[in-house]
Amino acid sequence: MKTDRAFHLKLYEQLVLIREFEERVKFLFLEGTMPGTIHQCQGQEATAVGVCAALRPDDFITSTFRGHGHALAKGLSVQEMLDELFGATTGCCKGKGGSMHMGNMDKGMVPGIAIVAGGIPLAAGMALAFKLQRRPQVVACFFGDGAVAEGAFHEGVNMAAIWDLPVILVCENNLYGASTRIDKVMKNPRVSDRAASYGFRGETVDGNDVLAVYAAAQRAAEECRAGKGPVLLELLTYRRTGHSRRDACHYQAKDEREAWFARDPIERFAVQLLDRGDVSQADLDAIKADVDRQITAGVENAKRAPQPTLADLTTDVFA
């Protein structure tokens, strides 16, 4: 395990980066300096980091309206994302996408698809292209437990299955679709069971264990690259913040929240790292301080970043 020190510290840095990014964005939003709305992923950082760590730079991901973590994990910069959130032309989508449509094709991330399950057929189509072009890439398609009830889930997953497409179907099961708990909308709440009915492999993983997620995603990516896709990964996790904006999560039971907070992916991984013997608390503190500096500088830049002119309203409609 010690040989992985640098890799593990990198994972830790990404986890912390996502957490601190989201906390800062929440502050900016509540402060009223940042426009728009937000859907955040505090508590779910390990799903994005673990999956993206198993991908190559030219592999793709599709994301959802809750995509800040996916974007950071796939390599989008803090700056291009903060600029986007502030609506600046230097944002990853020139300020035309915003929080729900973060993406950067050069870094392998399709702009977030904010229609629930809308990214699933799309990801299957991307994987179909890779197969037709005989390219070795895979696509990891992130969606929530809520997407499983959509028709698009069934249609996209079925076609991925019948054509053995290289798509990792990543269900971030955080127990809630907006405010509705999973047991009210699923007779069988084990999402990974659905894979068998389509004829491929599904697996439920502790989504708050970044190394477990990474290992599962690596297996899935290897299978997909070997023409044995798709794979359904159900990552069990929990959203610490509201569905969006000022949602205070009154629908989440206190004991449930406490149980999941005790399984926080960052704290758990910190304990694992400190147990190694070659990582100190000072190392982790330095990472946190560095991330904080990076985000603070990013926010200052984003607040001064160039806003679009009115002429930009009608550009970029057609290629």
Partner: peptide
């Protein structure tokens, strides 16, 4: 819905 989405995804790639 599914095959139209697949066409969109394939076109993007």
């Amino acid at each position: 819905l599914g095959f139209t989405g697949m066409a969109v995804g394939a076109a993007m790639m």
